[in-house]
Structures are given as C-alpha cells and as structure tokens.
Write a protein that binds this DNA or RNA. Structure first.
Lengths: 143, 143
DNA sequence: TATTGTTATACTCTATAACTATA
DNA sequence: TATAGTTATAGAGTATAACAATA
C-alpha cells in the first residue's frame, strides 16, 4: 500500500478536541464575563468548595494547569474575595485554598449559568449520548 | 432544594475538554517538534492535500481558527516550502492553498507519527470506544 | 534530595479593529 | 454592502527556570 496517509483530517481527534475545547471555553467565558471572571476561576472555586480546602497542586492537577498558573488564578480569586489561602497544619509548604462565604454564594448564583453552557457545549447530543460522551472523555483524561 | 450546585467539577465538560485538548496538543506538538512545525501546520497541509487547493477561509473553518491566524500559519508553511498560495480563477479575492511536492512527501513521512499520537490521545479506550468517541466529538463540533 | 509555592520571563495562542481588493 | 485576505496589536494562555521554605 503506497501513499496511505491515514484517516481524513475530519476524524483527527487532536483537531476535533481543539475545536470543541476552544468553542466550549469561548461560550463559558462569554457567559461568565458579566460576573467578572472566567471559566477557570469558577472551576477553581468549585474545586475548593468540593474539597473543603485543597492544595494548589491539586487544583493544577484537576484543571491541567502549571503550578505557576495556579498562583495567578488564586491571586485573582483572593482579590475578588471568593477564596482564601490557609496554612496546612500537616505540611507547612502547602497552602490550602478554600471558598469564602462570598465564594459559596457566587457558586449558587452562577451554577445555573454554567449548567446551560454545558448543555450548549454538547448541543447536538441526546441525554444518553451526553452521558456516554462525558464518561469516555473522563477516561481519555485518566480521571 | 437548596444549595444545588449542579454536578461535580469532575463531570464538567468544559474542564474535561480543555484538559483533553491541552494534553493531546502537547503530545502532538512534542512529536512533531523534530520536523520543525506544530500540529496545526501538519493539519493545514493535510487539509490542503485533501481539498486539492482550498481557500484560507476554509482552513480556518476546519481548524476553528481566526482568518488572521491562518495567514500566519500559511506564511510559515510557505517559507518551509510545504504549501503554496495560488490565485482562484473564479474569485480573485480568494487564494487557494495547495501542497507542494515537498508537502506531500512530508505528509507521508509524518503520517505514522500523527497516527500514534492519536492512538495515545485516546489511550484508555478500546477500538470501538474510540469510534464512538470520535463520532460524538464530531457532532459536538457540528462536523 | 524532593516537593510546594512563588517570581520572572518568554513564547504561543486568540481576538479585534482597520485596511485592500474584490464581489 | 459583503467577503477574502492582510497587518498590527493587545490580551490570554502556556511553559520554563530559578528560588525559598519545608519535608
């Protein structure tokens, strides 16, 4: 077989993921813009709330961000009054990020907005297909 | 029901897509680095080859890129000698991008590398699951 | 020796506006 | 009036190296 160049670019996972991610992120950031922060800020407060005080490393691991990016992110959120850094009594290198009361209030207010963004990000799919898609996506990212 | 803040961040499609895309792109760019270009360059030559001379607009549409980004991309590829711009006889505003012989040779050489990247990008999935995943992903991006 | 967080920095990516030439 | 491509530019995102404090 000569000249086999694999599948079409339209089946290229790397391209498809880049497009899907770019589009979902643009939608999410546009929807959150009125609140004065972006998708990753919302996600960080949510991670902090779910974990009840999580090390910055862990935030980076969940979001796929470099530790230095997490510093900037948590700085933003601290100056917005949505999270606070606290010393970890068990490891003084670590700083635990937890939501402030304002952060929790924000989560409740913004949650439906984010819900609609997620629906829209999987627009063409049925409910069952969305479940399948998210389940496969989680395995793709080893979660 | 009070305090319902939707699903866990671990089921957040926007977060999952951003992680999957970032990881796939890093893998692809690292694999292509020895060849002197990145994933989007490869994809552009491939689009040009499949279409046999495609307008820059169309490249932007397939890759989800702004027209101004496509200009820079095609500039890069032209100076690498992998594609050329040709006037469209039917519309003199349009410039058709087509692969050079060197571009076609490159595609054949790089294709197996990209194939392995794609496999790796869907590492945990079976062949059947990969098909399902790509099919759903294409519908998510309306392709 | 290894790890957490931090700073500084450079590079890439994304998005917009303003422009030209064509339609 | 609208569209294809171009330029310049600003802003966001990503990545690296070097460092202090702590394990």
């Amino acid at each position: 077989m000569t000249g086999d160049q694999g599948t079409s670019i339209r089946e290229d996972v790397v391209v498809l993921l880049a497009r899907a991610s770019g589009s979902a992120l643009r939608t999410a950031n546009a929807a959150l813009e009125p609140f004065g922060f972006r998708a990753r800020h919302y996600a960080t407060v949510k991670i902090a709330a779910e974990g009840g005080g999580v090390p910055q490393r862990q935030i980076g691991a969940v979001l796929g961000l470099d530790p230095s990016a997490v510093v900037a992110l948590v700085d933003d959120l601290e100056s917005l009054g949505l999270v606070q850094r606290q010393p970890d009594p068990d490891d003084r290198r670590t700083r635990l990020v937890s939501p402030t009361p304002a952060g929790l209030t924000m989560l409740e207010k913004v949650s439906p907005v984010v819900g609609r963004v997620q629906e829209r990000s999987m627009g063409g799919l049925t409910a069952a297909e969305r479940d399948t898609f998210v389940r496969l996506l989680r395995r793709v990212v080893n979660e």
